[in-house]
Amino acid sequence: MNAGTEFAIDVRGLNKHFGPKHVVRDFSLQVRAGEIYGFLGPNGSGKTTSIRMICGLLTPDPGSGSGTCLGYDVLRETAAIKREVGYMTQRFSLWEDLTIRENLNFVARMYGMKHRREAVDGALERLGLQSRANQLSGALSGGWKQRLSLAACLLHQPRLLLLDEPTAGVDPKARRDFWEEIHALAADGLSVLVSTHYMDEAERCHRLAYIAYGKLLATGTAAEVVSSQKLHTYAITGPNLAPLSTALRALPGVGQVTPFGNTLHVTGQDDSLLRAALAACTSDAAYRVEPIESTLEDVFISLMAGATDNFVEQ
């Protein structure tokens, strides 16, 4: 079995320091070809830095780990990687003072594409932007900017897409369309690594990785990640939930207490301790307590709480 062809991304033990800050610590990631891989973690956890190392924008610290991206060495063959990877930055990074067509045309030139005109026309047609092709891209709304960015990084027909929080600030309808497109692309064999903060998006990925403060904390399918954390969650309904949640937080065995409208979700790792705490606080018959499935969000918040912030932000 050839690892280079089976994995779109296969990196092990990558590190990155910015000055004294250890931003990414022993980062390892395997993304299979044709897979949509979700990349999650709190703000400032090193997601963007990791993505930049994978696509050759940043050089990992020397002598620490190695890896391949599309079979190319991430340390030495960055030029080849750049040619076959589409990278969509977190912020809109096309030229706002160029028109939509000029932007696409420029990107096509940067990749040295042969049939530039056809490719740009095709991309405009897929976007449904032919009629607005001569509009300045700076005048587009957030959702359209995002679609244009995606079209720009698909133009050179990459084998791997790296999307850094692609749907931040985009409305739900546009997000749903976006994900439909991502799934269609993956069905055609494109591999996708996407970072996000949205749980519904995380659940749409084939597999997930959770990174916090430069360390990879959990990987697997959504279900695997949830079950691996062995969390127990109960839903409470009843009167005066606010004082109840304060009381519960003080008790041992209670991890998180999260209000969801008229219910309270209580999560903990030790089921017997958690049950004892619940019994102590909800003896009143007005309360109804029932066990429910832990969600991805419960798991991530629990992971985030457990991760030590090993460097001070700014």
């Binding site: 696509c55 924008l57 030029a79 750049k82 040619r83 990877v85 990278y87 930055t89 912020r91 809109f92 990074s93 096309l94 030229w95 706002e96 990107v107 940067m110 990749y111 040295g112």
Partner: peptide, 13 residues
């Protein structure tokens, strides 16, 4: 300043 430099660097240029 506008963040477009990153885009430029991500291309093979």
């Amino acid at each position: 300043e506008r963040g477009t430099f990153e885009n430029l660097l991500a291309t093979p240029a």
